[in-house]
């Protein structure tokens, strides 16, 4: 119970601080953010956009880990866990894509310009879509669990190419790209302590939120399955006796 209140306070603080704290040339008080050349006010999206992108990858990692565990133990609960993680992952992936595109409209002048990071997040969206398409095409539960676990692992090994290698070899517009001189690498140099603090608080808050949602999703599916089983038992007893 207490951690829910803590999470609420944390999320509220991060949202208010992220949106309202002023950006000035030379920050002197604790609630002022530094001015980053080339970004300005646009820099504030880092408190909301980066956590969603981070959770997209975390969700994908979890579905890969639970897929691995399913292949090892053949326990269908692991498959349910992977399924819930992917459901949340696709939501956060869409959020990261949309917030990024809206930000790009203001920062770069176009919603979409095939920057390496945009390509990466688009590929992740495709992987999530393909994963759900594969699942919906298989009837048998065990077969579905095995094949989707295998596919998450195969897809996961390509993710480092998208996230870590492509943005560094291709020239891009995103802060932190290989040829970005005005504002990158943003996390290391240009943010001052206050900004870093709010950024990491935001990451922590979003991560807790994710695990909470994941837990609720997992439990609700288990309860649904149990109810389904009970209904079948009742139905059988009515028809048979």
């Amino acid at each position: 119970m207490y951690w829910k209140i803590f999470l609420f306070v944390l999320m509220a603080f991060v949202s208010i601080a992220g949106i309202t704290f002023p950006i000035v040339d030379k920050p002197s008080v604790w609630y002022e953010f530094p001015f980053i050349p080339g970004l300005g006010e646009n820099a504030k999206i880092i408190f909301f956009h980066v956590p969603t992108a981070w959770l997209t990858v975390i969700a994908f990692l979890m579905s890969c880990i639970y897929g691995f565990r399913y292949l090892k133990n053949k326990n269908l609960n692991d498959d349910v866990k992977a399924y819930v993680a992917n459901q949340l992952g696709i939501i956060f992936c869409i959020l990261a894509t949309v917030t990024g595109a809206v930000w790009a409209k203001f920062a770069w002048g176009a919603f979409w310009s095939w920057d390496p990071r945009q390509t990466s997040i688009f590929a992740l969206l495709l992987i999530y879509g393909a994963w759900f398409a594969l699942r919906s095409s298989i009837e048998s539960e065990e077969k579905r669990a095995t094949l989707s676990s295998v596919y998450s692992i195969i897809a996961f090994v390509t993710v480092p190419f998208f996230i870590f290698i492509m943005p560094r070899i291709m020239t891009g517009l995103h802060p932190g790209s290989a040829d970005d001189e005005t504002s990158g690498p943003i996390v290391n140099f240009k943010m001052n302590e206050n900004m870093l603090l709010i950024f990491f608080l935001s990451l922590i808050a979003f991560t807790i939120l994710y695990f909470w949602m994941w837990n609720i999703g997992y439990k609700s599916i288990l309860i649904k399955e149990k109810l389904q089983k009970n209904i079948e038992v009742v139905r059988d007893s009515i028809f048979n006796g």
């Binding site: 390509t119 590929a123 495709l126 879509g129 398409a133 594969l134 094949l147 390509t158 190419f161 492509m166």
Partner: peptide, 29 residues
């Protein structure tokens, strides 16, 4: 490897490029 997954899954024709494309994208780019 994707073909072996497809062979076990139900819909064979359309799903193949859908599953392969994200996996092949780093290579093709």
């Amino acid at each position: 490897i994707i073909a072996s997954i497809i062979a076990k899954a139900g819909s064979k024709g359309t799903l193949y490029p859908v599953l392969s494309f994200p996996v092949l994208l780093p290579l093709i780019l």
